[in-house]
Amino acid sequence: MTITQLQYVLAVAENKNFTLAAEKCFVTQPTLSMQIQKLEEELGIQIFDRSKKPIQLTDVGVQIVEQAKNIVNESGRIKDIVDQQKGYIGGEFKIGIIPTIMPTLLPMFMSNFIKKYPKVNLIIEEHTTEEIIRLIKNGQLDAAIAATPLNEDSIKEIVLYYEPFVAYVPENMDAYNKKEFEVEDLEHNIDNILLLQDGHCFRHNILNLCKAKGLSNENHFQIESGSFETLIKLADEGLGMTLLPYLHTLDMSERAKQKLRQFKEPRPSREVSLIYSKKELKLHIIEALKATIAGVVKGAITFQDVKITSPLQQKK
């Protein structure tokens, strides 16, 4: 049994296809198939049920894959230990970022990080918070940037910044005439608030903010979208108002900024953190990321008096 064979097994389990798995592993399909077959012969069992399309794991295969993840992940930590000892900041580093943070934060720090740490092969992936938690636990991500707190015992969180919510109010709404918002003001516009679709933690931030004030339940929100840009366009059409994260408002046109309304202090906000497994060994790269992001965000976000809302979906 070899680490390479286990890596091939994991690739097939993930892609449910030998050809795709071979491409991901940069080997030919016959080579990958032969190595997996040799492992199955050595163990005296079938890991995959090849009669099904797509390929499925057998019952024992499910258990083997779970153990293989641990073995492959732990084997990779040997090099991490050596790099840490040498103070070497380089190598592959996979980081996940949630969709409501990726478009604004990534351009702010990516260029600076690459220039300062050219030996780090930073692989950026966009995932929902739920996916990020799973991938970190499985060792498929080294770290992630997400809204916190997540209340996961196996995951460590380093707060990067606090990002206030900002109301975007079209001119046809009475709320447009207010210079500054209070959370209670949402009550008068609760049936006209446009939200992101389910699956976005920013949606849960807003729902939890409203629920904390006893303002609403999810049935009030009728129009939903997958992006802030669409929500803004819907608001411009007079279909309602929406709430945006502060960084998303920085590059808006001056005309659009006239529709923005800040909340009174303490401003409802989300906590954005760099998160990673407590078993993670690439702490030198994590520290480099933290320092780089903190350096660029420091000038953009200077809010101190904030009130954090949870990104977790509350049970009904």
Rank of each mutant, 00 (worst) to 15 (best):
T4H: 03
L6H: 06
Q7W: 02
Y8R: 07
V12P: 00
E14N: 08
N15S: 14
K16Q: 15
F18S: 06
T19E: 04
L20I: 11
E23R: 10
F26I: 10
V27F: 05
V27W: 00
T28N: 06
T28K: 05
Q29S: 11
T31G: 04
L32N: 02
S33F: 01
M34S: 09
K38H: 13
R50Y: 06
K53I: 09
K53A: 09
K53D: 06
P54I: 14
Q56Y: 03
T58D: 03
V60K: 13
G61A: 06
V65E: 02
E66L: 12
Q67C: 11
A68I: 13
A68V: 13
N70G: 09
V72H: 03
N73K: 09
N73A: 12
E74P: 13
R77M: 15
V82N: 05
D83R: 07
Q84W: 02
G87I: 08
F93A: 03
I95Q: 04
L106S: 05
I114C: 05
K115Y: 04
K115N: 11
K116T: 15
N121Q: 12
E125Y: 00
E126T: 05
T128G: 03
L135F: 08
G139I: 06
Q140A: 13
Q140E: 15
L141P: 12
D142R: 00
A143W: 00
A146M: 07
A147G: 11
P149C: 03
E152A: 09
D153E: 15
D153L: 14
S154L: 13
I155K: 00
E157Q: 07
I158S: 10
L160Y: 07
Y162N: 14
E163D: 02
P164L: 02
P164Q: 00
F165W: 02
V166I: 15
Y168S: 04
V169M: 00
P170I: 09
P170T: 14
M173W: 12
A175R: 01
N177Y: 10
N177R: 04
K178G: 05
E180L: 08
V183W: 08
L186T: 05
I190Y: 04
I190P: 00
L195M: 15
Q197G: 09
Q197S: 12
H200K: 05
H200T: 04
I206V: 15
L209W: 01
C210G: 06
C210D: 02
E218M: 07
E218D: 13
H220I: 01
H220A: 14
Q222N: 12
Q222R: 11
I223M: 12
I223P: 00
S225F: 10
E229A: 13
I232F: 03
I232V: 15
L234W: 10
D236N: 14
E237D: 12
L239D: 06
M241Y: 05
M241T: 04
L244K: 02
P245I: 15
D251L: 10
R255M: 09
A256L: 09
K257H: 06
K257W: 02
L260D: 08
F263M: 00
S269F: 07
R270P: 11
E271P: 14
S277G: 02
S277M: 07
E280T: 11
E280H: 04
E280Y: 01
K282W: 01
E287S: 09
A288V: 01
L289D: 07
L289V: 07
G295D: 15
G295M: 03
A300F: 01
A300K: 11
I301F: 02
T302Q: 14
Q304N: 12
Q304K: 14
V306L: 05
S310D: 08
L312R: 11
Q313N: 08
Q313W: 00
Q314S: 09
